[in-house]
Amino acid sequence: MTPLTLAVVTAGLTQPSSTRLLADRLTEAVSRQLADEGRQVDVRVIELRELAVDIANNFVTGFPSPALDAELEAVTGADAVIAVTPIFTASYSGLFKSFFDVLDNAALTGKPVLVAATGGTARHSLALEHALRPMFAYLRAVVVPTAVYASSEDWGSTDAEGLSGRIARAAGELTELLSGRPSTGRAVDEVLPFEQQLAALLPKS
């Protein structure tokens, strides 16, 4: 069976980064659950901090650098995406948004996406619902129900309702979407013209 491909987009600005740490924990949880179901997964981690200049130049020139183009292709061709951003001023970071701005609008159509974020305080957790989820809905991605937010105090939590529990639940939801999903390149059903769809609703004479 062809391995599934998972693109992990992380927008942490420091090194080491709590955003990357959360991305790694989510990736490990998804990989482990897929392995339990007998599915292999190839993971590609995309560190946006390393592409900041390339992303800015793309806006000016209209063309991606070879390095940026490779990562855009990795996201486009992946079977699923994990997207993790730090929260700045109650929303995703500018670097995170800029990367998805230069991605083709149709690249995430129908693609399972797990969204997550980090921040210094729990009061920013709703940014996942009012900022990230609408953005990926606009891009026509299939966003898993559980979004994972990690504030500074969450990292020491081990109970079922804490960070570890949310990671496991979100990973399970992404795994469920990927289970039985063929690798990229599957055929898309032909779309009938609107007039034919309307005609099919007419009563038979």
Rank of each mutant, 00 (worst) to 15 (best):
M1Q: 11
V8G: 01
V9Q: 11
R20P: 00
R20G: 06
L26D: 00
L26G: 00
A29Q: 08
S31W: 13
R32T: 09
D36Q: 15
R39T: 05
Q40D: 15
Q40A: 11
V41N: 05
D42G: 07
V43K: 15
V43L: 13
R44E: 04
R44G: 00
R44A: 08
V45F: 13
I46M: 07
R49V: 05
A52M: 09
V53P: 01
A56D: 08
N57E: 15
V60Q: 12
D69W: 11
L72G: 03
V75A: 07
A78V: 02
A78F: 01
A80M: 07
I82W: 05
A83G: 07
T89W: 12
L95T: 12
S98C: 05
F99I: 06
F100N: 14
V102N: 04
N105P: 03
T109E: 14
G110L: 01
K111M: 06
P112M: 15
V113M: 10
R123G: 05
L126C: 07
L128A: 04
L128N: 05
L128Y: 06
L132N: 02
L132S: 03
R133T: 00
Y138W: 08
L139V: 01
L139M: 14
V142L: 15
V142I: 15
V143K: 14
T146W: 10
T146R: 15
A147H: 13
Y149V: 05
W155C: 05
A160F: 03
A160R: 15
G162D: 02
L163W: 12
G165T: 00
G165H: 04
R166K: 12
A171E: 08
G172P: 08
G172S: 14
L174C: 09
L178H: 07
G180W: 10
S183C: 06
S183F: 02
T184G: 08
G185A: 03
R186P: 03
A187I: 04
V191M: 13
P193V: 08
L198T: 00
A199M: 06
L201P: 02
L202Y: 04
P203A: 14
S205R: 11
S205A: 12
